[in-house]
Design a protein around this nucleic acid. Structure first.
Lengths: 230, 230, 230, 230
DNA sequence: AATGAATGAGTTTTCATTCAT
DNA sequence: CATGAATGAAAACTCATTCAT
């Protein structure tokens, strides 16, 4: 028991430090030494608990994705109406990002750090796709049932999802509005976005926008890396 | 002229490659050699046009921030009503991220890669703050004028801003909805979020949310790095 | 010219040191730091001239094998009689090992250090097989022509070859007998071994031989690694 | 007994694995972990039976050398004629290498892995020298008695010995010729080498031999490591 | 007797950067 | 202008070994 506890402890402390450093500096900018220093070990000590830096990242991401999927499916269980499902998806994604900002930042932002083609990466992409399918089907069902009116399902989904995931960047529990309020507001926004057909409002003169001579033109149409495979 | 042109050309090609690589892999994961290879130079050759890797990043970010500020101020010029100003802010931020996704990803995401305390970093933080002041004041003015009703100005601002900046992650010009539609929809959402007082909707049982044993508890209240100094 | 010379020089000095160290301590026991120290460079400096430690080894082995093959084919050119060919093979293999003992020790002994399945290893095995084919066919032709009488062609070939390659372990130019004498003696031995049928002489009582309780019994019949593929 | 047996068993299994791995990959390329894995133990477990990796190697080599010496002296006992002694030396060395190829490869090839100057290394060198003295004196006696005619006693001894030791590289019990035949043939070769005066045969044009620009020129005359101290 | 944890020194290799040419 | 050479520092990771349990 003692031994197991100590081991489990070391493992948890490493993961706590890893999630913090990966979230703050990014995976590539975090060295094993930083990690070791943060948990009061030597470089070599870390390798007693972790197969490799990348395996550690993959493990964090896998567990995080699975946790999100499991929680989502628990919450969606028995809920039929597309609007209710969408509301639940928004609330839970937002709240998860508010309550576990470090873990979710790593989960959302470090896919690119996993070796392309590696089994770990493929598995995590599959998990992410499985999660997104809940969004896809909620929206598609709403549209099919005539409850939602939207021009571009992919766009709507991605816009709403990035509104929710953005929460991990700015939410603080000691702010003026509670997590419940944030969830409520985001849910309201999401449902509004989905119910009303797009009203075309005057858009400002795009010629006034900044232009960057170096912006690579030919990649603009490529799928962003974050979406590889979708 | 020839020389100057060639030089300018090399500079632009380097920046194009840099913005692309920094956006795709991240600054820390991009080596000078990757950059050099991408533009068909040697390592040493790159240093003819660039003082250092970090100076290159700082330069990209500075010009991007300045471009955004300048464009924003050009557009806001003469616009008085807080609602109109907010609409303009939303549209222009969204459109900029849609049209320059690589540049804006670097601008939004690589602040942490600049050495803390360096003049370059301080300058860029100042620029970002200057930009955000337009949002802050538009919202504050709207609230002061009784046009906006919001519980938490910071939260509202950050939520709307991250909705707009998220665009660079998923927007594609060949989608079903045009950039104008996206801007219009986002503007509508923003204005709705600001006009209505928050309706408290039923929020799902938070005990069902995923929990991660390693999520660092004590940092949750700290300002996320992305906000250092705000 | 200057530059090219310096470069070629650095490359040659690295290879000289590498061949010496690999021959003396073995590839696995030689660090890049040892190599660097031996040529008065830093670790990193070596990597300017060499892709990796293993690539360096592969390069040495490849050039050595090719050199041996080319020389052998030059010498064998036009020689028809199996006995003459065998004599030439013995002389040239012996002399090469006497004159280039370091290079040949590496060539003969470090095959196992190349990553199994790597293209470099496969290529060098192919080269070695090509070389050995000259021995195989000389012996087989002699047997077919009735000039040679031997019980086991493979055994005879390998025994004679390891007699020749052993030279690199003990030959010294300042000994009492000249290289010509060594070659002459080895040639005489080889031809004698091949001409007479095996006379069965009394062999000592094998029960007196040492036995080692740890000698792995089940691998004894496996082809020795040095022979993989043959 | 139980305990002693289990211990002896573990010891033997470790040595079996060690001899196999050291022979196949070389001492330097074999890790304690490889050893442990091969016998189904943990790293630390191995250290219960072995003082250190180097001590294990030294132990294997010591026992092997002693076994060879003991067997040789048993066989030589009472044999007077230099020719008979040489025949016995050849047969027994050959047969030992054929029957214990792994052990003998380690014995012959890993002297360089023992720390220079260490007592273990000195002891093993002394053992090897004691063994070689049997060869030295057999040859010297034969020459003194006028039975042998050779130009260079050292050369002859080393050439014959490396012919015998080479057996561990290629001998397989399932070949076309029996171990007895091999011993007989090698004995015949050895006696022939020693009886006949060297006939000067035509040696091929050495200018056709391969040359390697990196072959260290200044070490060519140094005693090969394998001979350190002789 | 055996193990899991840990470590300091080591491994090969890459990094951003400089500089003589 | 541009390059090949070189470097100190650091990267991720492995080494043989120790020790409390």
């Amino acid at each position: 028991m003692d031994l197991k506890d100590r081991d489990a402890n070391a493992n948890r402390r490493i993961r706590t430090a890893a999630v913090l450093l990966f979230a703050q500096r990014g995976y590539a900018a975090t060295g094993i030494r930083d990690l070791a220093r943060a948990v009061g070990m030597t470089n070599a000590g870390v390798y007693h608990h972790v197969a490799s830096k990348e395996a550690l990242l993959a493990d964090l991401m896998r567990v995080a994705q699975r946790g999100l999927i499991d929680a989502t499916e628990r919450m969606l269980h028995g809920v039929e109406s597309p609007a209710d499902r969408l509301a639940l998806l928004i609330s839970s994604l937002t709240a998860t990002h508010a309550l576990s900002p470090m873990t979710t930042r790593v989960m959302d932002g470090e896919l690119r750090s996993l070796t392309p083609g590696s089994p770990a990466r493929d598995e995590i992409i599959a998990l992410r796709d499985a999660y997104e399918d809940h969004w896809r089907s909620a929206i598609a069902d709403g549209v099919a049932a005539g409850a939602f009116h939207i021009a571009d399902q992919r766009l709507t989904r991605l816009a709403l999802m990035s509104m929710c995931t953005g929460t991990s960047e700015w939410y603080r529990p000691d702010g003026d509005s509670s997590l419940e309020q944030v969830c409520a507001e985001f849910t309201a926004i999401g449902l509004a976005a989905v119910r009303s057909s797009v009203q075309v409002v005057a858009v400002p003169d795009l010629s006034l926008l900044p232009e960057f001579p170096w912006e690579p033109p030919d990649v603009r149409n490529d799928p962003p890396i974050a979406e590889a495979g979708r």
